[in-house]
Design a binder for these strands. Structure first.
Lengths: 133, 133
DNA sequence: CTGAATCCATATGGATACTG
DNA sequence: CAGTATCCATATGGATTCAG
């Protein structure tokens, strides 16, 4: 660790270790438009495709499929196909997926808490800009 | 809160409150390709444009500018222009910005810890797929 | 029901050149 | 030094259609 730089988190050094390249690669996929929301929804337990689709308003079938595939590929979600007709497929967080829940919800919690402040700041900013020219 | 759903985080209900629409809007901007990395770098204190550009390998001038503008607009970073020539501009986290540091680094820490596991899972997944056809 | 495939619009982001 | 402006390639993601 460099000289008197205030590092209040043990991973801060690792983040900058390779310029954040490794971190970015993983984070880009965890932190996208839908992943955190799907993970948060799967906190409720094992759910099937349609349940997820209904509980996450606004997500398209395509994006739900892609998000679930990525989560499955990364070992964060397990996929169970029941040999029935009509087909029934259930998704569930793996232990690794559940371990993501807490930091993900912490970030989500931060976002929710700061929505009013951020939106106020944005309005002030655009007003300022508006007067500017 | 619905029936016996295991909710181990106080904000989980709010996340699904509006289907995550509000959350997504904010989270999409916090959780993009560069924001977390810029915030983490500003943990070191007040930095000028060139310092940030040098400490975040891979970021383009354009994206650093855009990311800083968004953070400034959201009240998470302050921008100080010194009336000198050549110009000197310094960026620093606001208190709100600093409050983002901990959840952001927690998520980053999770990502770093799980990189090996995730990459192993990906390899296994593509091998499986490879055998599939 | 659970997808995969296709089409298309927009967003993101890098490279480069230019400015005060 | 600290940007802005422009061009262009790729990524993202919605809508729709088709299939097992």
């Amino acid at each position: 660790m460099p000289e008197g730089v205030p590092m209040n988190f043990p991973h801060a050094c690792m983040i900058k270790g390779d310029g954040g390249r490794t971190l970015r690669r993983i984070l880009d996929q965890i932190c996208n438009k839908w992943t955190l929301l799907v993970v948060a929804t799967l906190d409720a337990g094992r759910l099937r495709f349609t349940d997820l689709h209904r509980q996450i308003p606004g997500i398209s079938q395509r994006m739900l499929t892609l998000t679930l595939r990525n989560l499955e590929r990364d070992g964060l979600v397990s996929r169970t196909v029941h040999a029935e007709v009509p087909p029934r497929v259930e998704y569930e967080l793996t232990p690794a997926g559940r371990s993501l829940l807490q930091p993900a919800l912490a970030l989500a919690g931060w976002a929710i808490e700061h929505v009013p402040q951020i939106e106020a700041s944005r309005e002030a900013y655009s007003e300022q800009r508006g007067r500017g020219h």
